[in-house]
């Protein structure tokens, strides 16, 4: 019984996170300005990372933890680079 509850909760959590990614992707497409798109992309990364963590709990495998960590790092680097680009027009000064 408790297993069924856990499974349903995890399915619900994954659905919510997927929906959050879809909403953030809509913000990336919609804009209206470049900074909105970058913010949307950052949110996609964040929710993708959380999605992988929940997926790790679902499958009981710790390998997804490392995937989540890498997504987090890439998301950070990407957003910082894009923000720098918006500010100066070039990434590396």
């Amino acid at each position: 019984m408790s297993q069924a509850i856990l499974l349903w909760c995890l399915t619900g959590a994954q659905a919510l996170l997927a929906a959050a990614m879809a909403l953030a992707a809509w913000r990336v497409v919609r804009g209206p300005r470049a900074q909105d798109r970058v913010l949307g992309l950052d949110t996609v990364y964040l929710n993708g990372m959380l999605f992988l963590l929940v997926f790790g709990v679902r499958t009981g495998s710790s390998i997804y933890f490392y995937a989540a960590l890498i997504i987090g790092m890439l998301g950070f680097a990407a957003t910082v680079a894009l923000a720098k680009f918006l500010m100066r027009g070039e990434v590396i000064e």
Partner: peptide, 14 residues
């Protein structure tokens, strides 16, 4: 579920 819900709310706010 609660964590995912909060994150979803954040995306709605976005």
């Amino acid at each position: 579920l609660a964590g995912a819900g909060l994150s979803f709310l954040g995306a709605v706010g976005l």
